[in-house]
Nucleic acid binder design. Structure first.
Length: 266
DNA sequence: ATGGCAACTCCAAGTTGA
């Protein structure tokens, strides 16, 4: 059985309704995680997904943040063990959503969708909040690993893991998204038992997932790779391909992020 | 040196993002 997992920071699920609709039609993701939905749960546009045959779990708040996990109903069973926010991290912002999916008998994937804080500026209060968020995430996953062999940690990490993931590493040296401490937190996550699927499957490829709206950054390909799909090594053995759907960033009124994906055969 | 764009919000100028 083949299936795909995607992650996309949509920068408002309501403002991006047409894009999401088009994306579901053309890409037909089997499982997906969304970030920056920017809407409270009572106003979440469930029907946008339901009418295309998708189920959707969501956890949001007013104006900012917000995460969701969707699944193709004809192929994937309903989620179990849904967790909203990391139980080890007191947070008034909606940035974390986990759920388990039984793909086939005996093969379950634990999906952990995250929207890591941006961090604003190195050394700021928001920066320390970001680092704390990542520490608690690491603690959470360490516990999850005791009971799950197939974990997929995906979302907007707001970290460019290495210089190859940045269009100009001199400009971004020790800037937010690229600082040593942020990269160390990323590597600490990997050290638990995870692999950065895109980088392992495309070792020398420079490809980005985010481009600033300003300065015609997308046209000039001035981007960073800050959205990621990490999997446990056990799950990684089933992955064939990992990529980024940059076409979608070309469209009018697009999100500033492009969706990232993996293809899996079990 | 700064802003540039886009989405949000008690509807409109301030906040946030990356």
């Amino acid at each position: 059985m083949n299936f795909s997992i995607h992650t996309w920071n949509v920068n408002s699920v309501r403002a991006r309704a047409d894009h999401i609709s088009h994306w579901l039609d053309t890409i037909q993701p089997d499982l997906f995680a969304l970030q920056e939905t920017k809407v409270t749960d009572d106003l979440f546009p469930t029907s946008l997904f339901e009418k295309k045959g998708y189920g959707i779990e969501f956890y949001g708040q007013k104006s900012y943040n917000g995460v969701a996990i969707g699944y193709k109903k004809s192929k994937i069973f309903s989620p179990t063990s849904v967790v909203k926010n990391n139980p080890l991290f007191v947070d008034d912002q909606a940035r974390f959503l986990a759920s388990s999916f039984e793909i086939s008998t005996g093969f379950t994937i634990r999906l952990v969708c995250i929207y890591v804080p941006n961090g604003s500026e190195v050394g700021s209060d928001k920066y320390h909040y970001k680092l704390d968020f990542l520490d608690s995430l690491t603690d959470f996953l360490q516990l999850e690993l005791k009971t799950h062999e197939n974990i997929c940690l995906l979302g907007d990490f707001n970290i460019a893991p290495a210089d190859i993931d940045v269009y100009d590493c001199k400009i971004w040296h020790e800037k937010i998204l690229c600082s040593k401490a942020e990269r160390e937190k990323f590597n600490k996550l990997l050290a638990l038992d995870f692999l950065d699927t895109f980088r392992v499957l495309n070792p020398t490829k420079q490809m980005f997932s985010w481009w600033d709206y300003r300065q015609a950054a997308f046209r000039r390909n001035l981007g960073l790779r800050i959205d990621h799909i990490l999997t446990t090594k056990n799950l990684f053995y089933s992955i064939n391909k990992s990529g980024i759907t940059t076409e979608i960033r070309k469209r009018e009124k697009s999100s500033d992020h492009a969706p990232c994906w993996v293809e899996i055969t079990i």
